[in-house]
């Protein structure tokens, strides 16, 4: 059954690679659409250079830092907004603005304010923050009032009510937002690297390839972005499974 699944996956991959190869042959220009083979050669050549891995490492580091900060601050702001109506009223416009502002505007503005090294981190942060914030707030709002009444009657106290009732209630919303946010952060972070010309970054390498008309290199860098995105997604799904198995916060106290 597993072999059948692998063969099916390989078949689908071959189909799309074949389509790409045919399209490349039809266009017949390396500058417009390099073939999968040319892209693979470029990727192989780039991977032999130390700067390739340095760029990949720093891109990951910067974007993940922004993402993790957004998850932490988003949770905090979600809790504050849910607990304090005044804080919610005060902060809501900020969240709406962050949500509605185009990512390009954020990047171009932030480039004026901070060093290009930090632009991807900040961009990832601003993109993910409102998502986590809104989902945590909604999760708390939607917590079963009957369970909260039960917790009150049985003298759970604030900490226990939070860890045993609220946290498991917001967990599905939070995890869904984290998964969506990871994709957002990665794409927005690379876009920020492109526009901010962040040193030692995938984005800068991508734009330099474009300036030098090295389309196959652009495809190779893009392939790296996709590969890292898939890797991150898999790591997250693995972590998610772990949390679902073991992470019933506070229950086993």
């Amino acid at each position: 059954m597993r072999i059948k699944g692998i063969l099916r996956g390989l078949g689908i991959a071959l189909f799309w690679l074949g389509t790409w190869q045919l399209a490349s042959l039809a266009i017949g220009s390396l500058f417009i659409l390099p073939s999968p083979l040319e892209t693979a050669f470029s990727l192989f050549r780039l991977a032999q250079q130390g700067s390739f891995w340095v760029s990949a490492f720093y891109s990951l580091l910067r974007i993940l830092a922004g993402y993790l900060a957004a998850v932490l601050f988003g949770m905090l702001l979600g809790l504050i907004s849910a607990a304090l109506p005044f804080a919610n009223a005060l902060l809501k416009p900020l969240r709406s603005i962050m949500k509605a502002t185009p990512v390009a505007s954020i990047i171009l503005l932030v480039v004026l304010w901070i060093h290009s090294n930090y632009v991807p981190t900040f961009t990832a942060f601003v993109m993910v923050l409102p998502l986590i914030w809104a989902n945590v707030q909604e999760g708390i709002r939607a917590t079963d009032t009957q369970l909260l009444e039960m917790a009150k009657l049985f003298h759970f106290g604030k900490v226990k009510t939070f860890t045993i009732v609220y946290l498991p209630s917001i967990l599905p919303n939070l995890l869904a937002a984290c998964a969506t946010g990871l994709g957002f952060a990665w794409k927005a972070g690379v876009a920020a690297e492109v526009l901010a010309h962040t040193p030692n970054s995938i984005g800068r390498s991508l734009i330099q390839s474009k300036y030098n008309l090295l389309t196959a290199d652009m495809f190779a860098w893009t392939a790296l972005v996709i590969a890292l995105s898939v890797l991150l997604e898999h790591a997250f799904v693995h972590l998610l499974g772990q949390i679902r198995r073991d992470g019933r916060w506070g229950v086993n106290e």
Binding site: Q146, L147, E149, M150, F154, F156, K160, I164, V165, P168, R248, V251, N252
Partner: peptide, 18 residues
Amino acid sequence: FQENRLLPWCTSYENIAL
């Protein structure tokens, strides 16, 4: 309560122990 109001993410043991 009129409803059971058990914590769905806790076992029978945990619901009582809590």
